[in-house]
């Protein structure tokens, strides 16, 4: 029989509290979301009667379906734009040596460190000038500020590793640079692209300050703002049941995504910070 080490004991002691601490809030949110009316204010953990009233309420009081769609559109748009632009830049920064490359890389990374509030008023003017106020395009543009640098950085790390021979062969065959990037390298970069797409998607989905400031009408809001501003049937009510239901609706797909693509996400995160 294997000798039980001290570290094993520590391990088994640590697992339950860690699991509990990590999962309890979300499980409680799920339980609360199925409680109806005053059952929320009782001290039972699980609802005595399971009710979908809160879920119905979420969609009744605000255009939540529209909000979900908006979030998908914004996050998807941001990812698509980021990837396109970043692939081009990453190729140049990762595989061509030119003067100023290092500085450029650092500048691009530095941009992701800007505090959002520092560019809030300037961005507001730009967006008003372009007539994009209260439209989803405003968010697609502004979210690029943190997805673009991150995507460039990670793609550069992976681009560097790709074999030179493939590139040279294609160029000799007369292929243009764009073909090299999109037809030859992109398929090889698939894991990296998947990772950064996911992380960028989650970051854009989560984004709050710009969404709060640049959209006004309920139909244009994205999910985080919609949840933060959920109100009940009177202007003072805070319907906790509805808020929990909305939280569950928004989080389950995200958790599913994260769990399925665990390994990609981890590799993406670590490539940015630990490697390079």
């Amino acid at each position: 029989m294997k000798r039980i080490e001290f570290t094993d004991v520590l391990y088994w002691l640590a697992v339950p509290p860690v699991l509990g601490f990590a999962l309890f809030p979300f499980v409680y949110a799920i339980a609360s979301s199925f409680k109806q009316g005053n059952a929320l204010f009782s001290s039972d953990f699980w609802p005595k009667t399971w009710s979908l009233a809160n879920y119905a309420g979420v969609f009744a009081e605000q255009p939540f379906g529209q909000n979900l769609l908006n979030s998908v559109l914004v996050a998807g748009g941001v990812v698509a734009l980021s990837l396109t632009v970043s692939l081009l830049a990453a190729y140049a920064l990762g595989r061509v040596s030119f003067r100023g490359r290092g500085v450029l890389m650092m500048t691009i990374l530095g941009v992701s460190m800007f505090p959002q509030v520092a560019i809030l008023s300037g961005l507001f003017e730009l967006i008003s000038a372009l007539g994009l106020y209260d439209s989803l395009w405003a968010l697609v543009l502004s979210d690029l500020i943190f997805t673009l640098p991150f995507t460039v950085w990670v793609l550069v790390t992976f681009m560097r590793e790709l074999p030179k021979e493939l590139e040279e062969a294609a160029l000799m065959d007369g292929a243009g640079v764009l073909t090299v990037i999109f037809r030859i390298f992109l398929p090889l970069l698939w894991p990296a692209v998947a990772a950064t797409s996911l992380l960028a998607f989650i970051a854009a989905w989560n984004e709050f300050l710009f969404a709060l400031t640049f959209t006004l009408s309920g139909e244009q809001r994205t999910v985080p703002v919609a949840i933060a501003l959920i109100s009940g049937a009177s202007s003072y009510e805070l319907p906790w049941g509805n808020i929990m239901a909305a939280s569950v609706i928004v989080t389950l797909p995200l958790i599913a995504l994260v769990l399925i693509f665990q390994r990609h996400i981890v590799s993406g995160l670590t490539a940015g910070a630990v490697k390079g």
């Binding site: 979300f26 949840i227 928004v250 995200l254 958790i255």
Partner: peptide, 10 residues
């Protein structure tokens, strides 16, 4: 990973 996946506002 679950806490990290949940949006901050939520």
């Amino acid at each position: 990973l679950v806490p990290w996946a949940i949006p901050t506002v939520v």
